[in-house]
């Protein structure tokens, strides 16, 4: 009994020792790591899987941390402990490039993989409508100008804004402030719609303050924060024909049998209108690659090669099946050459 107990104690001690010794194990990595936007996540994971199936390299690990969180991790430093690729649903900001440089990440490659359209979708049971950024802003802003002064948003029904719109209460389900989709919606819909209204400029002359007014979304229940789970919004819309939902094109594409998308200024959301730049609520998607890791972590160049290949990004590529809207062929080819050569981003 006692000897056995001693053996157990000894092995437990050995285990603890081995744990303490773990950090001493040389830091190396033979697997690409990507972090970042939940919008780019489905595309990068699809590429990662196809890349892993070639059998030459391990399948890259992709984390969905949100664009901001991902770039923070990406910019934290150079070395196997830091990710190689950041997915972003917006362009990297100057402040983030500076932060990167401060941590030794001086050169990175930017690759624009294509576009994601933001859909304002509603149930098929509702009558189709045509909206515009101005209508959206009036419907969702916290404060709107009435007779030259800002007041708390008085619009309850869509028909209050424009008599041609249906007489139903404004109810929009959208992502919370932490989401990249929300950032893009703020910039593409709220800010644009707000800028088109000269009354706002009259009511708030200061530019900084005006931008804040433009991007502040009402909190009286007309805008419902529905969490990061877009599937949940799809289900809620099916149950409530009067509500609209804000989410990415891929979710609309997968649920065409239950959902329809509102037109923006008369333009329907299709892959063609986005690629042609006609549909307003579309955003470019990017990936950023740490140049210093190429050649250290195996397979980075090959991974970019896979990402930019025609079978992924082409008009019939597997990313298009996943809902990505590709750039026209000429731009794609130019981007491929730059990316594969790891041409550093100049900011």
């Amino acid at each position: 009994m006692t000897t056995r107990t001693h053996a157990v104690a000894a092995s437990a001690f050995a285990f603890t020792l081995s744990l303490a010794a773990a950090p001493a194990v040389a830091q190396s990595r033979d697997q690409i790591r990507a972090v970042g936007s939940s919008t780019v996540f489905p595309f990068t994971t699809a590429v990662a899987e196809a890349f892993g199936k070639t059998g030459k390299f391990k399948t890259p690990v992709v984390e969905s941390t949100g664009t901001g969180g991902g770039l923070k991790l990406f910019c934290a430093g150079v070395g196997p402990g830091h990710p190689d690729i950041a997915n972003a649903s917006r362009r990297i900001k100057k402040s983030e490039v500076d932060q990167c440089a401060g941590n030794g990440v001086t050169t990175m490659t930017e690759l624009k993989i294509g576009y994601d359209g933001i859909a304002l979708a509603s149930s098929k049971k509702a009558a189709p409508v045509s909206l515009s950024t101005v209508i959206l802003w009036k419907a969702l802003a916290k404060e709107v100008p009435v007779n030259g002064a800002l007041v708390a948003n008085p619009y309850r029904l869509w028909s209050d804004i424009d008599p041609s719109l249906p007489k139903v209460a404004i109810e929009v389900l959208g992502p919370p402030p932490t989401s990249g989709t929300r950032d893009t919606f703020n910039e593409l819909a709220m800010l644009e719609g707000c800028r088109k209204l000269t009354e706002v400029a009259g009511a708030v002359p200061d530019e900084k303050a005006r931008e804040r007014v433009c991007m502040t979304i009402r909190e009286d229940g007309a805008y419902v924060e529905a969490g990061e789970n877009d599937n949940l919004i799809v289900q809620k819309l099916a149950a409530n024909p009067n509500a609209f939902g804000i989410f990415g094109y891929s979710y609309l594409d997968q649920n065409r049998d239950t959902l329809q998308s509102a037109k923006m200024d008369g333009v329907e959301l299709t892959a063609e209108t986005v690629a042609a730049g006609k549909y307003e609520l579309a955003r470019p998607l990017y990936i950023y690659v740490k140049n210093a890791h190429a050649g250290v972590i195996p397979g980075i160049r090959e991974f970019i090669g896979e990402y930019t290949s025609e079978r992924a990004l082409g008009d019939d590529g597997y990313l298009v099946d996943k809902g990505l809207i590709p750039e026209p062929k000429a731009l794609r080819d130019a981007a491929r050459v730059e990316a594969v050569n790891l041409t550093p981003l100049q900011f």
């Binding site: 892993g52 690990v61 984390e63 969905s64």
Partner: peptide, 9 residues
């Protein structure tokens, strides 16, 4: 700690 990730292998 990064265990919420897409991992194929």
């Amino acid at each position: 700690i990064g265990m919420v990730a897409f991992i194929v292998d």
